[in-house]
């Protein structure tokens, strides 16, 4: 299926990626090829097979409700671009 400019813009926005005007042709071309390639799945006879979400045939393990993590804020925040008073700082978010 061919992808339109609108498709590219919509997906890019959902994924929070910036797509410049001059990148649109490359995206429509390459993503179009990829989508064309995966369209092969359409022909597969899957009948009433259940979807396989995971290769492991196990159930979820549960951990006891115990606090094990100590406060390491200062260590963890060393990787943050902007922080103040223990908070991570971002441009103003309007609610």
């Amino acid at each position: 299926m061919a992808l339109t400019r609108k498709d590219i813009e919509y997906i890019a926005h959902l994924a929070r990626l910036e797509v410049h005007e001059d990148e649109i042709p490359a995206y429509t071309d390459k993503l179009g090829k990829i989508i064309g390639f995966i369209d092969a799945l359409d022909a597969a006879e899957t009948g009433d097979l259940l979807p396989m979400a995971h290769p492991l045939n196990m159930s979820q393990r549960l951990r006891p409700d115990v606090v094990t993590a100590a406060d390491q804020r200062d260590v963890y925040q060393q990787n943050a671009a902007e922080k103040e008073g223990g908070l991570y700082i971002v441009p103003r978010v309007v609610e």
Binding site: L41, A44, T46, P51
Partner: peptide
């Protein structure tokens, strides 16, 4: 669909 085909392949 891919998840179903994944089962098929498995």
């Amino acid at each position: 669909k891919a998840q179903k085909v994944r089962q098929l392949i498995s």
